[in-house]
């Protein structure tokens, strides 16, 4: 039997110090992932700062780019009308006072009145939000489910027909404008085959084509990143170690390789979902899906600035939330980030 002492001291720096209370508390913190909580708190703080900056930009752009009072008053208004509105709405006050006033109201959920619909902006926007979120989620799911398996296969069998097929699909996806691809889908599945409805957002079937059109556009980036990451990781020493242990090919590829290759893909997924919410303006218009994108397009056409502003702010906050989520996922997947 070997006794520890015979082998000599283990590298000193990493030895647990003692049974001292502080040492025990540190061990406890490590054990119950307080490190993860600290990391999450830091990321959250940063996200809040970014959200604040976005609110300043959204507010300033609108008030600097046009005369808000004139827009509210309408085209037929006289100078006196505009001046009256300016006083009534408080637009004559210093910009910074207006900003904090607006921020206070926004935080309590009061986004003002729509100039076109004459209804609460918050109600309008919230009623359209689910459609866009569902579209984004399905599109992302479609993109991920298409691209990650293809990316993995392409990396496991490089320079074979499956790799070429993946590359072909990726190039097509990047080259096709999404609105054109959407029209092709409509011609094929709605007009010729009559499998799916052309437009509207009443049932799940209405979401199939928009999700494919939107998701297919995002898929190539995932696929190439997955393939590149997997190629790197599959030649890493620790993958050889996993093979040396006699693990099954499935375990080597998925447990040991993909887990490490997927980390950058996660970060990209969050960013891509943000782009998809933006891209949904085009897709929702093509398919007449009654969502946020469609609303944004209409509000811009009707000069309905409170709605436009609310949508810009909401999409920004969602985008920031997604980036935060990506950071947290990264921390969860990569222990090296979490522990620092």
């Amino acid at each position: 039997m070997l006794v520890r002492g015979e082998i000599g001291p283990v590298n000193g720096a990493l030895q647990p110090v003692s049974r001292h209370p502080v040492a025990l508390a540190l061990a406890f913190a490590q054990r119950y992932s307080c490190a993860m909580l600290t990391y999450a708190a830091k990321r959250l703080g940063l996200a809040l700062l970014v959200a604040l900056a976005v609110s300043v930009i959204a507010f300033t752009l609108l008030h600097v780019s046009s005369d808000v009072a004139a827009a509210i008053a309408g085209e037929a208004a006289t100078a006196a009308d505009i001046e009256f509105i300016r006083k009534a709405y408080g637009f004559d006050r210093p910009l910074i006072v207006q900003y904090f006033d607006w921020l206070g109201r926004t935080l309590t959920g009061d986004l003002g009145q729509s100039l076109y619909y004459k209804k609460d902006v918050a109600d309008i926007v919230l009623s359209k939000l689910p459609v866009t979120l569902i579209l984004g989620a399905i599109s992302l799911a479609f993109a991920v489910l298409l691209s990650i398996p293809l990316g993995v296969l392409a990396a496991v069998y490089p320079n074979t027909w499956i790799d070429r097929l993946a590359l072909f699909l990726a190039v097509i996806g990047q080259a096709l404008p999404s609105f054109w691809f959407a029209l092709v889908l409509i011609m094929l599945f709605s007009l010729t085959l009559r499998w799916l409805p052309v437009s509207g957002s009443d049932s799940w079937a209405h979401f199939v084509m928009p999700a494919i059109a939107l998701g297919y556009y995002a898929a190539p980036a995932f696929m190439r990143l997955t393939r590149a990451g997997m190629m790197d990781v599959l030649s890493a020493d620790f993958v050889r170690t996993a093979r040396a242990k006699g693990l099954s090919p499935t375990s080597v590829v998925f447990k040991h390789a993909l887990r490490n290759a997927i980390i950058p893909v996660m970060a990209l997924a969050a960013v891509q979902l943000g782009f998809m919410l933006g891209g949904s303006i085009v897709i929702e218009t093509v398919f007449a899906l009654d969502g946020l994108g469609y609303l944004a397009w209409q509000s811009i056409r009707h000069n309905d600035f409170p709605v436009t502003q609310a949508i810009v702010l909401l999409l920004s906050v969602v985008y920031i939330g997604l980036t935060l989520l990506a950071d947290l996922l990264n921390g969860w997947l990569d222990p090296r980030i979490r522990v620092q």
Partner: peptide, 19 residues
């Protein structure tokens, strides 16, 4: 492999899976 015959490598810094 890993049962009757096992292997250790030169680079301990990269031979273990970081995740």
């Amino acid at each position: 492999r890993g049962d009757r015959m096992a292997m250790i490598f030169q680079e301990p810094m990269t031979a273990l899976n970081p995740a």
